[in-house]
Simulated scan of single mutants.
Amino acid sequence: MELNTIQPASGAKHAKRRVGRGIGSGLGKTAGRGHKGQKSRAGGYHKVGFEGGQMPMQRRLPKRGFKSALLKFNAEVNLNQLQQLGVDEVDLAVLKQAGLVGQLVKVVKVIKSGELTKKVALKGIGATAGAKAAIEAAGGSLDA
């Protein structure tokens, strides 16, 4: 292969459509734009969602709901996950290391879902009332 013989793959390049160049081209006169109207004019178009002046759908419908930007910093861990972790002392770093919570998480709470038989000490981690009872019943402790 030589530099002067390099060519694009066949079918990769195609001729640009030349409009408004006479009747014989098939795209003369109106140049494929039809007759009159906003879409036939130069620079004539509208923004997304525009409905010809009618109140657009996104403004006719009511606003609803809210999603807090802070939710990405909160996480929950259940009792089964603590059981499978197999560590005596659990803190935020241990949970992140094990992949049970995301790296951005700052607040973790243990929820009562599943069983816990191992003794687990929680450091800087919250728990629901039911989860707290289950952890203490298994001989564990909370230091939140």
Rank of each mutant, 00 (worst) to 15 (best):
residue 138 A to N: 14
residue 137 A to I: 03
residue 73 F to T: 06
residue 37 G to E: 00
residue 139 G to I: 10
residue 126 G to I: 00
residue 55 M to V: 15
residue 131 A to L: 03
residue 98 A to N: 09
residue 91 D to C: 08
residue 73 F to Q: 05
residue 120 V to P: 15
residue 41 R to T: 05
residue 55 M to R: 15
residue 39 K to H: 13
residue 74 N to I: 10
residue 131 A to V: 01
residue 40 S to H: 08
residue 81 Q to M: 08
residue 60 R to A: 07
residue 25 S to H: 14
residue 12 A to T: 07
residue 130 G to V: 04
residue 28 G to R: 02
residue 40 S to M: 08
residue 101 V to H: 09
residue 44 G to F: 09
residue 8 P to N: 08
residue 64 R to S: 06
residue 57 M to F: 11
residue 4 N to H: 05
residue 133 A to V: 09
residue 128 T to K: 02
residue 99 G to F: 03
residue 108 V to Q: 01
residue 19 V to N: 02
residue 102 G to K: 09
residue 141 S to I: 05
residue 71 L to E: 11
residue 98 A to W: 03
residue 69 A to Q: 14
residue 36 K to S: 07
residue 85 L to F: 07
residue 50 F to S: 05
residue 19 V to W: 07
residue 15 A to V: 10
residue 118 K to C: 13
residue 123 K to I: 13
residue 103 Q to P: 15
residue 121 A to M: 07
residue 41 R to D: 08
residue 138 A to D: 11
residue 108 V to T: 01
residue 32 G to H: 08
residue 99 G to H: 11
residue 100 L to Y: 13
residue 23 I to H: 03
residue 94 V to S: 03
residue 65 G to H: 10
residue 66 F to Y: 15
residue 42 A to I: 13
residue 111 I to S: 04
residue 98 A to F: 10
residue 111 I to L: 06
residue 66 F to L: 05
residue 101 V to C: 00
residue 49 G to R: 02
residue 105 V to E: 01
residue 24 G to H: 06
residue 85 L to T: 08
residue 103 Q to G: 04
residue 84 Q to E: 09
residue 87 V to S: 08
residue 17 R to M: 11
residue 1 M to T: 10
residue 58 Q to Y: 01
residue 120 V to M: 05
residue 134 A to F: 10
residue 117 T to D: 06
residue 9 A to T: 05
residue 75 A to V: 00
residue 144 A to Q: 14
residue 36 K to M: 05
residue 9 A to W: 07
residue 143 D to N: 15
residue 100 L to K: 04
residue 115 E to F: 06
residue 98 A to C: 05
residue 85 L to V: 10
residue 57 M to C: 08
residue 104 L to E: 12
residue 102 G to V: 00
residue 61 L to N: 00
residue 10 S to D: 12
residue 61 L to D: 00
residue 88 D to V: 09
residue 71 L to T: 07
residue 76 E to D: 01
residue 112 K to N: 11
residue 4 N to I: 04
residue 102 G to C: 01
residue 19 V to H: 05
residue 12 A to Q: 11
residue 2 E to D: 10
residue 138 A to L: 10
residue 51 E to L: 06
residue 6 I to C: 02
residue 122 L to D: 11
residue 77 V to S: 00
residue 139 G to F: 15
residue 89 E to N: 13
residue 52 G to V: 03
residue 59 R to C: 00
residue 143 D to L: 09
residue 93 A to F: 04
residue 62 P to I: 00
residue 128 T to V: 12
residue 60 R to H: 06
residue 130 G to H: 02
residue 79 L to A: 02
residue 138 A to I: 05
residue 43 G to V: 10
residue 20 G to L: 03
residue 9 A to Y: 13
residue 102 G to S: 10
residue 15 A to P: 14
residue 3 L to C: 12
residue 3 L to Y: 14
residue 81 Q to H: 05
residue 87 V to E: 13
residue 120 V to Y: 12
residue 121 A to P: 12
residue 58 Q to E: 06
residue 4 N to A: 02
residue 68 S to M: 01
residue 110 V to F: 00
residue 103 Q to L: 06
